[in-house]
C-alpha cells in the first residue's frame, strides 16, 4: 500500500510536468493545426536559461524562474514571427517539418553554449521528509505547487479574459473565428506565449526533479504528445488530465515491469488511443 502511494506521489509530480508541456502542444495544435516538435527543446531551453542565472549569477531558483520563462517566451515568439508565420498559409505538414528543424537547432545551440555534460541546479543532497512511511522531497512539493498555480492561472486566462475565450473559440472553429472578426494573428501570438511559458516551467521543474542534459525535453516529448492525444488534441483541459494519467501510469508501471521499460508506457498509450479512440478520451479533434 505504501509502495503504491509512494508511486502515486512520483506519478503526480511527473504528471504535472507532462501536463504543463502537453497543454502547450494541445493549444498550438488547436490553433495552428500542427504538431510542434520543438516543444521538448523549448522546455530544455527554459531549464538551461534558469541554470545560467542560478549557476552563473548565483541567483536563487525562484528569481531565475520568471526571467527564464520570459526569455523562452521571447525566443518562441521570435521563431514564430521570423519562421512559422511565413509558413502558415502553406500546408500544416510544412510547419511540422520546420518545427523538427527548430528542435534540432535549439538543441545544437544549447549544447554549444552549455556543453553536453550533465549539470544540476543545486548539488546539495536533499533529505526527503518522512511522513507516515512516505518519502516526500521538498522539490516535489515545489513542483506540484508550481504546476497547480500555473494550471490555475491558465484556467483563469482561458475562462475570464477576452483573449483566452477567443483562443478557445479559434481552437473550436477557426473559420468562424475569422468571420466573427476575431484578430486571429493576435490569438496565435498569445498561444505561443502561453505554450512556451508553460514549456519553460515544465523544463525547469523536470530539471529540478532530475538533472539537466541537452536531451532533457526531447526525451519527454513522447509522453507529452501522448498526454495531448489522450486528452483529445486541441483541448487544454484534456491535456492536463492526459498528463496526469501518463505520469501516474508511467510510475505505477514499475509495479509490474522493470523500470527501464517506463518510457514504453507512453508509447503504448499512444498506440492504444490511436487505434481505439483517435479523437481522445474527452473527444478532441
Amino acid at each position: 500500500m505504501i509502495d503504491i502511494l509512494q508511486l502515486l506521489i512520483f506519478g503526480i509530480v511527473l504528471g504535472g510536468i507532462i501536463a504543463l508541456g502537453a497543454v502547450g502542444v494541445s493549444l498550438l495544435f488547436g490553433i495552428l493545426r500542427f504538431a510542434h516538435f520543438a516543444h521538448g527543446d523549448m522546455m530544455t531551453l527554459g531549464a538551461y536559461l534558469a541554470f545560467a542565472f542560478v549557476a552563473g549569477l548565483g541567483w536563487p531558483l525562484l528569481a531565475a524562474f520568471p526571467l527564464a520563462v520570459l526569455l523562452t517566451v521571447g525566443v518562441a515568439v521570435l521563431i514564430d514571427q521570423v519562421l512559422y508565420r511565413r509558413l502558415r498559409r502553406k500546408a500544416p505538414v510544412i510547419l511540422l517539418f520546420s518545427s523538427f528543424g527548430v528542435a534540432l537547432m535549439l538543441r545544437a545551440i544549447i549544447e554549444l553554449v552549455w556543453g553536453p555534460d550533465t549539470v544540476v541546479y543545486d548539488s546539495a543532497i536533499q533529505l526527503p521528509w518522512r511522513i507516515a512511511g512516505l518519502r516526500i522531497k521538498p522539490d516535489h512539493v515545489t513542483i506540484v505547487i508550481g504546476a497547480i498555480v500555473l494550471v490555475t492561472a491558465l484556467h483563469l486566462f482561458l475562462q475570464r479574459t477576452r483573449t483566452g475565450k477567443a483562443m478557445r473559440a479559434m481552437a473550436d472553429e477557426p473559420d468562424l473565428a475569422q468571420v466573427t472578426g476575431i484578430n486571429t494573428e493576435r490569438v496565435v501570438i498569445w498561444t505561443w506565449i502561453i505554450g512556451s511559458a508553460l514549456a519553460a516551467a515544465a523544463g525547469i521543474f523536470l530539471a529540478l526533479d532530475t538533472r539537466l542534459v541537452p536531451l532533457l525535453g526531447w526525451n519527454l516529448l513522447l509522453p507529452v504528445f501522448a498526454a495531448a492525444i489522450l486528452g483529445g488534441i486541441g483541448r487544454p483541459y484534456g491535456a492536463i488530465f492526459g498528463g496526469l494519467v501518463i505520469g501516474i501510469s508511467t510510475e505505477m508501471s514499475t509495479l509490474a515491469i522493470a523500470p527501464v521499460y517506463k518510457p514504453a508506457v507512453a508509447f503504448t498509450i499512444i498506440l492504444i488511443m490511436l487505434i481505439w479512440r483517435p479523437t481522445g478520451l474527452l473527444r478532441g479533434r
Binding site: 475565450k165 473559440a169 473550436d172 473559420d175 468562424l176 476575431i182 484578430n183
Partner: peptide, 25 residues
C-alpha cells in the same frame, strides 16, 4: 455580419461566450 451554413457556433463555448465572441470587435 454573416452566419455560415454549417459549423456556425463555437461548440465548447457557452451561449454567453458565443455572444461575447460576436462582440469581439
Amino acid at each position: 455580419s454573416y452566419v455560415p451554413q454549417e459549423r456556425n457556433v463555437f461548440p465548447t463555448l457557452s451561449v454567453t461566450e458565443n455572444l461575447e465572441m460576436g462582440a469581439y470587435t
